[in-house]
Nucleic acid binder design. Sequence first.
DNA 1: ACAGTGTAGGCAATCGATTGTTCACCCCTC
DNA 2: GAGGGGTGAACAATCGATTGCCTACACTGT
Lengths: 359, 359
Amino acid sequence: MPITLKQLSLLAGAHPSTVARVLHADPRQRVSADLRERILTLAREHDYRPNSVARSLRTKRTAVLGVLIPDIANPFFAGALRGMEDAAAEREYSVILANTDDQPTREAHSLALLRDRQVDGLLLATARLHDPAIAQLQADGIPFVLVNRHTDPITPNSVVPDDYAGGVAAVEHLLSLGHRRIAHIAGAQDASTGYLRAKAYRDTLKTAGADQFPDQDALLVRGSFREQGGYNAMTELLALRERPTAVFAVNDLAALGAIHAITAAGLRVPQDISVIGFNDLFHASHMTPSLTTMQVPIHMMGVRAAQRLLDMVVDGVAPEQPLLLPVTLIVRDSTGPAPQTNTSSHARKPSGARTRHAD
Amino acid sequence: MPITLKQLSLLAGAHPSTVARVLHADPRQRVSADLRERILTLAREHDYRPNSVARSLRTKRTAVLGVLIPDIANPFFAGALRGMEDAAAEREYSVILANTDDQPTREAHSLALLRDRQVDGLLLATARLHDPAIAQLQADGIPFVLVNRHTDPITPNSVVPDDYAGGVAAVEHLLSLGHRRIAHIAGAQDASTGYLRAKAYRDTLKTAGADQFPDQDALLVRGSFREQGGYNAMTELLALRERPTAVFAVNDLAALGAIHAITAAGLRVPQDISVIGFNDLFHASHMTPSLTTMQVPIHMMGVRAAQRLLDMVVDGVAPEQPLLLPVTLIVRDSTGPAPQTNTSSHARKPSGARTRHAD
DNA sequence: ACAGTGTAGGCAATCGATTGTTCACCCCTC
DNA sequence: GAGGGGTGAACAATCGATTGCCTACACTGT
């Protein structure tokens, strides 16, 4: 239906290549002002729009980025995708999306599909610490950037939160409130986010000398990145002889699940148990109690990742260092002073959020 | 880098067209079993994957759907997109996403870009009741399906919630709780969702004879689909001489804003004012109070929309009727009996969600 | 031995745009 | 008036896959 270059060239009485050069503002063009005007006018009149499929075939560039995400219905990834799309659109790039649900099979399938589609580069939010699919991309020389999660060791094409610093800050926040029996609901340990936050937890407790409980190991529970995992892990923690007075959950969803488990057990947050999350999903502030958490600049993470990829793809500029985005402690109502064994003072902080940087 | 058909044909000592027919399982193929095997083996060995850009140029089909959405960071649209992507992936289609922020300029630009990319069809969640861009698509014969919002009059290629029935059910729920001074925080009236829910509100009150207040007109306030709009509208309502005892907000975000305004004014939900939302975003149940709302099958809406589009695009089957998805009343804690003017009984319902269909 | 009829594949055009190379002029100059 | 240098624009070959149409060759029957 839309007019093609050839049809236009017929109308203009010129050769297609001449028309192409005119519309292209080809620097090497030698076209009379007269003919140029005629062509430009015709193009405007007929609303000529180049067929980008044909262009891509010839130029080997599609102006499309492939995005692999566990689940776009998860607001965390939705926010990141928004950032990616914003940055891509700014340079006239489009994004094509695939959900993997964290299943390697789907991941491989989607990856193959995207490559068949000749995307110019890939944004992957699905990396595991040791990821064969990503090693393959590397080997094949496909441009890509890792978002949110990175591989081991971390590579320059990674744009991730500073998970370790964030984990340290989260645990230090709890320590500063007087907590000593601090638990961690960990995420998948084959993901850098899950691994680093757990490592930060262990290291920080050790540094503080707060890891000397007989059952300290039981305080690090394997949960998941989702609400159910947080709920189950918390249930486990509540069954301990001496339960923790504070919990650092690997992310907000797990924290949410933990809070449900706590209140279901008839306990209160934060009076009996404090809970801190990670990410600061937009609804974290609407929960009850509102959630203390480590804020990750989600949208910016998407933006930066896409920008880096475009720098590689369009400008051929490869990043030299991974980008660690600073995370910020947001204190709300789900954390409070450690319960005093010998007193009933349950002081609560004001609800206004105070912030400070994690690093 | 990947091997092409021509290279493969050289290796097999056969003509490219022969190779193509073999790999294609062309029904008309007349190829010896021997050669066929040789070709298939080579293709497997070299992991031949057809270049879909080249294929698209030739076949004029890209196996890509374009999706236009106001904002993917809004969980409502994220859920719908997930449904679309799921349904598309099932038929080996991909989706390419563009955010419009409800700005006609961005919408037009993205639409043009997607068309340049030769998408096979469009999924639009951005329709206004009178939408020139959509009229243009219709005129140009581009296959598309409208999601969530439809045009006036509604067309068969629409997949939307049953907003009118949902609005009626919401207001009837409030009426059944004894409320008579019921307000509505309306959404944009140039969107079918905003318009129909407001119309349902007016109609239902009229039918019930509950619209006879001197300042009834002031109870229908222009808000927006976002939290801030709900907050502002509610502030306006609270300033009335006689404020409403219940509010039907056009969606959950507006309801959230309304609740904030109410509590900021020192009033309680639902004891002083009941609030009902629309959509049942996944976090609606985590709020305080948990939100009574009209549940829309968001994911399914995305699925059905994509399926319909694919039926058109792949099978040439055009829908005969628009699809109105049933919405369900979910009763939670944000609605309760109308306050008795002469008594202080503030009975609360149990918090477990009860449901019934809206139509 | 020859027309007839399959059978196994090759030919070549096409999709629409891009781009290195060539060509036909014209004007100048010596 | 032949060679030189510029111009302005056409030529033609891609990019990789698809597909309608042909052509060899073999075999059959008479």
